[in-house]
Write a protein that binds this DNA or RNA. Structure first.
Lengths: 208, 208
DNA sequence: GAAAAAACTCAACAGCCGTTGAGGTCGCAT
DNA sequence: ATGCGACCTCAACGGCTGTTGAGTTTTTTC
């Protein structure tokens, strides 16, 4: 795709020489648009206007709208790494820690939370985004839960899904009761529930 | 909007006389399309083709694409009524009952689950859908939790959001771990967590 | 049967979309 | 200075969109 006949003659080609800031500006504008408007409603023309560039410039940089979206979504992989640390440590207040890590990740500054938001919004419309989110959740899950029972993997997946549901309700749908509550109240309410889900099938027995 | 100068002269005007089946066919086609493709990707031309009708016919029936979407979303209000019953009864296995009611509602036949799916997919792109979902959740919440503490309302909202998150991960994003699990396993895992969230702040104390 | 209304068809408009190609301009290496 | 490649601009294409208006057929009402 991106790999053309690499010029072997000049050793340090590959880095852009000229003003690389323009490209970054386009990427930032696209990130913001995808996060707030979603994939379908975001137009290349609008992104170009936001970045103060000609639309064809965007095409020349990223090839197509899908590639631009892929470039935006390549970022959150780094931002999501912080979730790993939340699962480590003692399991005493595990639920509370995980909830707080999720909420704070989405309350972070735009450069960190916007790719996540773009990924989340895009996952509903764009198959590539859904696949990316799917793979991410699954990989992080099977990575962190290696050697555990299949039930543990299911429970971790459920925890991630439920937390994403809270983010959706709070940031996209805008359910008043959740928007009004601050992080501490949410952690206090959800933490124990997540704790039960994650660490303790404490004598619970299936009814069927 | 929809109310024009109502013809008072003819008493029983207002009911359609002719073949009302065509209109219902268009509505059914739109419901299916909005549910599977979302709002933005669904075109009036495609809906018309599915229903075997001319595109302009759709316009004449529903006025605009937004109105068509609104007509589709007017249905789930009835389908969602079943959630009320889940909250009633003894609080012993409340969490389990609520989880099962949600999962079964989305596993129901197309005529019941498609409007819900359309509403969910649309909420991410279409502001009207987001408002409808927001109002619905909030109204059902404040209705069922009348007279309870503000904390109870928050907890119920969180429960609904988390369950919606599970639906999104399972039906839209398609996280393998959740897709593979059947309803009973999900109920067994999520039920206790919901139980803790809904009924019992059992001596839980905020860590400040 | 006549008349009116609803259901339906056909063709077209204006607008926005992603994308393309042909150029112009600037900075750097030779 | 001179070439060359990256950066950037301009104008336009073809396609698909929601929407409209006029005309035709079918059904109901009188």
């Amino acid at each position: 795709m991106t790999a053309k006949t690499a010029p072997v003659t000049s050793p340090r080609v590959g880095r852009r020489r000229g003003p690389t800031s323009t490209r970054d500006g386009v990427l930032a504008a696209a990130r913001a648009r995808f996060a707030s408007d979603g994939f379908a409603a975001t137009t290349i023309r609008r992104v170009a206007t936001d970045a103060g560039v000609d639309p064809s410039q965007v095409m020349q940089f990223f090839g197509s709208k899908d590639d631009l979206f892929a470039a935006v979504m390549a970022i959150p992989a780094t931002a999501l790494a912080r979730f790993d640390t939340a699962f480590e440590g003692p399991s005493e207040h595990l639920g509370e820690r995980v909830v707080r890590a999720y909420l704070e990740a989405w309350d972070a500054e735009a450069s960190e939370s916007e790719p996540l938001m773009a990924m989340l919004r895009g996952a509903v419309v764009n198959e590539a985004a859904a696949a990316a989110l799917r793979e991410f959740i699954q990989s992080r899950l099977s990575h962190g839960m290696a050697g555990r029972s299949g039930d543990a993997l299911l429970r971790a997946g459920l925890a991630a899904s439920m937390l994403i549901g809270i983010i959706v309700s709070r940031r996209i749908v805008g359910v008043p009761a959740l928007v009004a509550a601050d992080t501490d109240r949410l952690v206090a309410a959800v933490g124990p529930a997540l704790q039960v889900l994650l660490v303790a099938p404490t004598g619970w027995r299936r009814s069927a």
